[in-house]
Design a protein around this nucleic acid. Structure first.
Length: 584
RNA sequence: GUCCCCGUAGCUCAGCUGGAUAGAGCAUCGGAUUCCUAAUCCGGAGGUCGCAGGUUCGAAUCCUGCCGGGGACGCCA
């Protein structure tokens, strides 16, 4: 509850409540209407009176004057003035800054967290790569957006189950299982054993390519692969063992990268897990009488503007959609949820509408709580033009390679900026800066927008970037370090009377609201944008004022402001999986 | 053809539930470093918010139509 109290909203609500009392009028959402005036000269908070005009049958400007004439005896209000239909409040800065800092302090480690999700459970599905392949840059979107959403939801009080829906099943794996025998002379996967290799996934990929080349001249190979997959489905011990090993080395590789990115899953359940559940769901569809035959396949019809969902092929095999139906049912059994997010690219929009639609037809009320948190495609530069990055044609850019490049560049930059640092510290900082730059660039703008993966831009580290935020955080830390050396303690804030100090405090107090909104909309960019604004405002302030100066008491109050900013930016960066740094 | 997403400065994007003069970054031009990190800051230039209607006291924001870009549309995932 501390979190909820420590918001700018509390100040707005007090104003709204008083306005209602003066006018003897109930206006439910009045506090939401209170915002910032366009210029500082006009005041610090503003209440537009348009909405009040209707119920009161008076001109907005007249209502504003009436309100201005009444008593506003809050200790933190200095003056109330009208500007036409707007009622503008000037804050009493000494009081306001004191209250504001107190509220951040009350939040302590919980600063930013709220209670909007209290008692609610959310499942977030994201990342969901295919085993036996490398994570590529295009996996970054789902992985980081999903992790940030999970963090934001958790921070706003939800119980979150993060879910990795692994692509670990399908006829394609038959080929890999066959490779063990087919290419013994080229690469015997038991010698050295897959698990002991430096890069087992690359070796598997190489064999996969060999297989596809071979099958062009020898069509028989296709059926060999099918046989192996059939064996796998039937539970043949050798097939299962080989598949397990592929799965296991793949997961090890994923985990290494997930760890670098700050990504963690509560559940890693692959498509292989739904064999029985799929049979059950098909039976259920039959029982409900909504499974129909169409061209020899089984489909479920939906409303007019959506094509039917294909549940079973002519040969009786199940499909992607069947798996998603089964998975949704199982999820709800395991963790009855209030909301279930699928962080999957926008191209799957129709697919999810179909799956959700079928579950609704089955009468599952929780189907309303399924949500496709779609995002735009990542495009790569190919011959000067931006193209969707697909695995075809070997054009895939490995995520690890991108991270390496970013870290390398960061390393040389740290060296030149800070030559005195120890080597292991440089490595740590460069890792955080390089990886942070890549992550932040992906979460800076609205998730629905397509993004061009512009490595040059990502590695520029200037302007609205992850490193910019980290640098700002480093400034906070430097100031606090210096103060600590000089033995200056944080003050209560009563001397923060500069206009830009009020701006900064208002910004800080908005933090919990921003998190709640970002969690509600499953939109990490709300937080990214907020942090950029906070950093920008501070850096402007920093250029004009000294925090630690001759006036000891003023210094200690400004230190408290810096501490509040540091707490806010630090927490915000963590939520976005960017590491806040002490130096760089 | 049907459906979904997008269209704001040269480029990349913010703009909350409609509110006062539409904001950043990059690029460009000019400036700031005896002092808490210049990965920063300040200033200049740059916009009929795709177009046309409508709703409203008020529209970049909501509704309709059109134009442009991207994507998806049954036996892949």
């Amino acid at each position: 509850m501390t979190g909820k109290e420590a918001q700018l909203r509390q100040f707005r609500e007090q104003i709204a409540q008083r306005a209602g009392a003066i006018l003897d009028l109930e206006v439910p959402q009045l506090a939401d209407a209170i915002s910032d005036p366009p210029t500082r000269e006009l005041g610090d908070l503003s209440l537009p009176c348009f909405q009040l005009a209707g119920p009161l049958k008076q001109a907005p400007a007249k209502i504003a004057s009436q309100l201005a004439a009444a008593s506003w005896d809050f200790p933190w209000i200095e003056a109330v003035e009208t500007a036409g239909p707007y009622l503008n409040f000037k804050l009493r800065r000494d009081q306001f800054s004191k209250l504001a800092l107190e509220r951040v302090e009350q939040g302590s480690d919980q600063w930013g967290s709220g209670s909007s999700g209290h008692g609610k459970r959310v499942i977030v599905e994201y990342s969901s790569p295919n085993i036996a392949k490398h994570l590529a840059v295009h996996h970054l979107r789902s992985t980081m957006l999903g992790q940030a959403m999970a963090n934001l939801l958790r921070c706003s009080g939800h119980e979150v189950v993060s879910w990795n829906h692994l692509g670990d099943w399908g006829t394609g794996f038959g080929k890999l299982l066959a490779c063990w025998d087919l290419f013994r002379d080229t690469d015997n996967l038991d010698d050295p054993a897959l698990e002991l290799r430096e890069d087992p996934v690359s070796d598997l990929n190489a064999l996969y390519v060999l297989y596809n080349q071979a099958s062009e001249s020898d069509p028989q190979l296709e059926s060999v692969a099918r046989d192996w997959f059939r064996k796998l489905e039937a539970g043949d011990p050798l097939a299962v063992e080989r598949w397990q090993r592929i799965r296991s080395v793949s997961l090890d590789k994923f985990d290494a990268i997930y760890q670098r990115l700050g990504v963690h899953f509560d559940q890693t359940i692959g498509e292989s897990h739904y064999q029985d559940a799929m049979l059950a769901i098909v039976k259920e569809l039959e029982g409900a009488g909504i499974l129909e035959q169409s061209d020899g396949a089984d489909v479920v019809r939906l409303s007019e503007d959506i094509p039917p969902l294909l549940v079973r092929k002519q040969d009786g095999a199940t499909l992607y959609g069947t798996r998603d139906l089964a998975s949704a049912v199982l999820r709800h059994q395991m963790f009855p949820f209030d909301r279930c997010l699928y962080v999957v690219d926008a191209g799957q929009g129709l697919h999810f509408r179909q799956v959700f639609g079928v579950l609704k037809r089955l009468g599952y009320r929780w189907a309303e709580d399924l949500e496709h948190a779609e995002f735009g495609v990542m495009r790569l530069q190919v011959d000067g033009a931006w193209k969707k990055g697909k695995t075809r044609g070997g054009q895939v850019v490995l995520l690890e390679a991108v991270l390496e490049q970013a870290v390398q560049l960061a390393t040389s930059k740290v060296h030149s900026k800070n030559p005195d640092l120890a080597e292991d510290e440089v490595a740590k900082i460069a890792e955080a800066v390089g990886v942070g730059a890549v992550i932040f660039s992906d979460m800076k703008s609205a998730r629905r927008k397509d993004v061009n993966f512009d490595l040059e831009k990502i590695l520029s580290f200037d302007g609205e970037t992850g490193p910019y935020l980290q640098y700002t955080h480093v400034r906070f830390c430097s100031i606090l370090r210096k103060a600590s050396d000089l033995n200056i303690k944080s003050g209560g804030g009563g001397r923060l009377v500069e206009a830009d100090e009020v701006v900064l405090l208002k910004r800080v107090l908005r933090f919990p609201e921003v998190i709640a909104r970002a969690a509600r909309d499953a939109e990490p960019s709300h937080l990214s944008q907020y942090l950029l604004e906070l950093a920008g405002e501070f850096n402007t302030y920093y250029a004009q004022h000294r925090v630690i100066g001759d006036d000891l008491e003023l210094s200690s109050d400004r230190l408290a402001l810096v501490a509040a900013l540091k707490r806010t930016l630090g927490k915000g960066l963590e939520l976005l999986c960017v590491t806040p740094l002490e130096r760089m």
